[in-house]
Amino acid sequence: MNFNVNSSFLYIIAVCVIIFVLAQSVFFLVRAYRRGKQLGMSSAKLRKTIFSTSIFTIAPAISILLGVVTLSKFLGIPLPWIRMSVIGALTYELPAAKSAASAIGVSMAETITDPSVYTTVAWVMTLGILPSIILPPILMKKIKGGMLKIKSKDEKWGEIFMTSLFLGMISAFLGVVFADVRQGLVGFIPLFVLLVSAAIMGICGLLIKKFNLKWLETYALSISMVGALVFAVLITPVIVG
């Protein structure tokens, strides 16, 4: 078989992997939906979760698509497509491909023509991310047991513990926008975007409370995110000049 980064064979593999991912997602979606109904949660509540999550996911998903496009110049479409759909994230796949490329001394600006170069990159990208898929089933029991122990000892502290996990994550991603501020006004752009998103969310929250606009809850995060992204597109040329 002649090698080509966009061969039908590679596309068939990609389609098989995508079908597997979709099957797993649908399996868990249906089980959770049925369990929600058994627990007495209304169909409206469950559908609201599905709908608002769908809307919210579109913008970040497009940025992932951009990752597929970026890597496609070097690796073709199928491999980045697979990697971005299973376990992967752009923050990992790009450095992994770069590391593999530099290990074999090829440039990422040119499409791979040698199959052994391609398989080297594929193996590095796969093995580098493997712990993320192997560890959850191994550690699940211990982590769940630990959480249960904390909660049963002191319920109030258990709640604070849980909130601390969320806040710890959020504070890291909020703090990171300050990383570039010493570069001058350009470095403030992520901070401005974050503040605009927070402000839009705040306004949505006020509208929901003051005018009882319950429907807005479904879209609030999507509106604040898209609003902030539009702001980023408008403000960047003004600041960069």
Partner: peptide, 18 residues
């Protein structure tokens, strides 16, 4: 600029609630 700022746009809204 939109693609470069996905995370701040996301965590700004999420963060303010929490």
């Amino acid at each position: 600029p939109a693609f470069n700022n996905i995370l701040p746009a996301l965590f700004g809204g999420l963060g303010v609630v929490y």
